[in-house]
């Protein structure tokens, strides 16, 4: 049972991905949303960076901007030294295969009339990889990697359960041997028993293939399980980043602490647990609070928090937080 499935990530290794001061805005009749508001992060080869935060805080937009499925207004996304945001559509082409995305229901946006084999083989065909036979072998290999039988290739997406559909999505994402997979809420729609199957699969694949993950989820216990490091987002900004161990043992940002305290636990003895419950609702993304975005709900807020925006500061080795009091 106690098997080491953790990739060994040495600290001196150059990052695979470096995001710097990334900004994504959406304009609409209701106003402007700063969905991603100056985000910086990095991911090393073979590493899992978890990204948590409440719905609407910009996690998906950040993931999509990294994969260039949405265009950022400013900032850079460097993959092994190349700034993807400066590439043209055709210049981006060779790099597309390096970054793949898996969504909550990865087959929802795909043609339901295609067989699973066609769906998994599509990226290979688009990138002109292999002939028909080689592609068929590769599809069989990918199906077996994600724990599906070879005859799945001839069946259709609707014939599969939620967990199996997620396996198919992962197989498709793996087809081009990416260096980074952005997993956007990949287990959020699954029941816990099936969720465990998919999480184990993702961990196994990473240790075999050395692929890095950006693992987006609103579920802290899932993020804790898979991540080496974790970034916490609130209203478009990253408020804290640290290693998994440090974030869980000593969260520095009041929002991170509030998130942890909000999760219902199953430790039975601790009935009188004191909670730092967050008051109130998430503010509107169209009109986020001045100063520290969190001050309207923060139990520690002082007057100047509403004026002065805290920047990310180092609070310990490989641990940064954006709070005046962290």
């Amino acid at each position: 049972m106690h098997q080491n499935t953790q990739p060994l990530v040495a600290t001196h290794i150059e990052p695979l991905l470096t995001v710097n001061d990334l900004v994504v805005r959406f304009d609409s009749s209701r106003g402007t949303v700063h969905a991603v508001d100056g985000v910086s992060l990095s991911i090393k080869p073979g590493e899992t960076l978890g990204l948590v935060g409440e719905s609407g805080c910009g996690k998906s937009t950040l993931g999509r901007a990294i994969a260039r499925l949405v265009e950022p207004q400013s900032g850079s996304v460097r993959l092994g030294g190349v700034d993807l945001t400066r590439l043209t559509r055709s210049g981006m082409r060779p790099y597309r295969r390096d970054i793949q995305v898996v969504f909550q229901d990865p087959l929802a946006s795909l043609d339901p009339r295609c067989t699973v084999g066609m769906l998994i083989g599509e990226p290979l065909r688009i990138h002109g990889i292999g002939d028909r036979r080689q592609r068929r072998d590769r599809i069989a290999d990918l199906l077996s990697k994600v724990g599906l039988s070879a005859d799945s290739a001839d069946r259709y997406p609707h014939q599969f359960s939620g967990g199996q559909r997620q396996r198919i999505g992962i197989a498709r994402a793996l087809a081009l041997d990416p260096r980074l997979i952005i997993l956007d809420e990949p287990v959020s729609a699954l029941d816990v028993s099936v969720q465990a199957q998919i999480l184990n699969l993702l961990v196994d694949l990473q240790s075999k293939l050395g692929v890095a993950y950006l693992f987006i989820s609103h579920d802290l216990s899932v993020v804790e399980y898979v991540s080496d490091r974790v970034a916490v987002m609130y209203l478009g900004r990253i408020v804290e980043t640290s290693t998994r161990e440090k974030l869980w043992s000593s969260p520095a940002h009041p929002y991170t602490r509030a998130l942890f305290d909000s999760i219902p636990r199953i430790d039975t003895g601790d009935l009188g647990r004191r909670r730092h419950m967050v008051q109130g609702d998430l503010p509107s993304a169209y009109n986020p609070p001045e100063g520290c975005h969190f001050h309207t709900r923060c139990p520690r807020a002082e007057e100047f928090c509403a004026v002065e925006s805290p920047i990310l500061r180092t609070v310990a080795d490989s641990h940064v937080a954006a709070c005046h009091f962290a």
Binding site: M1, H2, Q3, N4, T5, Q6, V192, S193, Q195, A196, L199, N200, V203, L220, S221, V222, E224, Y225, V226, R244, E245, I266
Partner: peptide, 14 residues
């Protein structure tokens, strides 16, 4: 099957 607190001495258990 619930994830969470599955790390022993920094190593992830299945």
């Amino acid at each position: 099957a619930r994830p969470g607190r599955h790390h022993v001495n920094g190593l992830r258990t299945r």
